[in-house]
Design a protein around this nucleic acid. Structure first.
Lengths: 154, 154
DNA sequence: TAACATTAGTTGCACATGCAACTAATGTTA
DNA sequence: TAACATTAGTTGCATGTGCAACTAATGTTA
């Protein structure tokens, strides 16, 4: 009673592979963060990384850069603020805007994520050539482009 | 004050591309399901698909197949049961076990997801050759293997 | 058989998420 | 300037998630 057609199509397509692989990577990253005693989710880590690249971004910009709804980002920040990894400062020019800064503690924690990231990257790319990785990234970029060129997301 | 080294490494690695692409695909799939008036999350759709392939699986098996914690699966099923997409039947052989079946409504809904899946697949794979897709899947398989060979997950 | 271990499934908790409705501040325009 | 529109951020609500602790049923073993 199965539909052979769809099943085959589906397994040949990249979608399910993408979803499951991403889930596995997330899972192991989270595990590794815990194993290193870092009180940090993968999502919070990404925010730290963006702030490390450019401190003082506002919430809107951070939400866009991390591909998150502004409400989701706001709640991430609230938790990170409570842990004193970041601080929010109201902008003088526009009182609606919060500028977000890494605290010293936040910088310290981010440094501690480096070996974790290295480790996950190494595990992922074991037995993969640079060429394979490069080609796969090229495909992922194209997929992203296929969606972004359709609509503006978030 | 940025670390050029890690930034470069990080962007050259496949991890962030994987996460973001997967997120975008999820987002558009969810959007498309809604656009077709289907009262269904992506996660619920995956459960329907597994049951369509093999009806009567128990919750443990479904959790494994969908790469989910058993508690998460149980809650997904509860919502799907309330919507009458699936039904749980206690096994006669082992009263601890629930066998899960698609209802007629569930089958009908699953059929309606087909054009949605087709559409997402087509969008994703626009301007991608079969060879590119095949190679990318090969890389994703290897990454999955790299993690599964490390530990048993979930 | 009684005691212990294991297993399937549920529940409490904390987290992350998007949408819609909301507030406060800013911008625009009649 | 007053009225309206837009914008940044917050909050309520529903969803999905893993872990740990729990219950009920089954398996194992002294």
């Amino acid at each position: 009673m199965k539909s052979k057609e769809l099943t085959v199509d589906f397994e040949k397509s990249i979608g399910p592979w993408l979803g499951k692989t991403s889930k596995m990577v997330d899972y192991h990253l989270q595990e590794e963060l815990q194993r290193h005693g870092l009180d940090l989710s993968k999502e919070q880590m990404i925010v730290l990384k963006k702030l490390h690249e450019e401190d003082g971004l506002n919430q809107n910009e951070l939400a866009f850069l991390t591909f998150r709804d502004k409400s989701s980002l706001a709640r991430l920040l609230s938790k990170m603020e409570k842990k004193e990894y970041i601080s929010r400062k109201q902008s003088k020019e526009d009182k609606r805007v919060n500028e977000v800064f890494l605290t010293d503690e936040g910088k310290k924690i981010f440094q501690k994520t480096r070996p974790v990231i290295k480790h996950i990257m190494n595990t992922m790319e074991k037995n993969l050539s640079n060429e394979e990785i490069h080609q796969a990234i090229r495909v992922l970029r194209k997929i992203q482009f296929n969606f972004t060129s359709k609509t503006t997301v978030l």
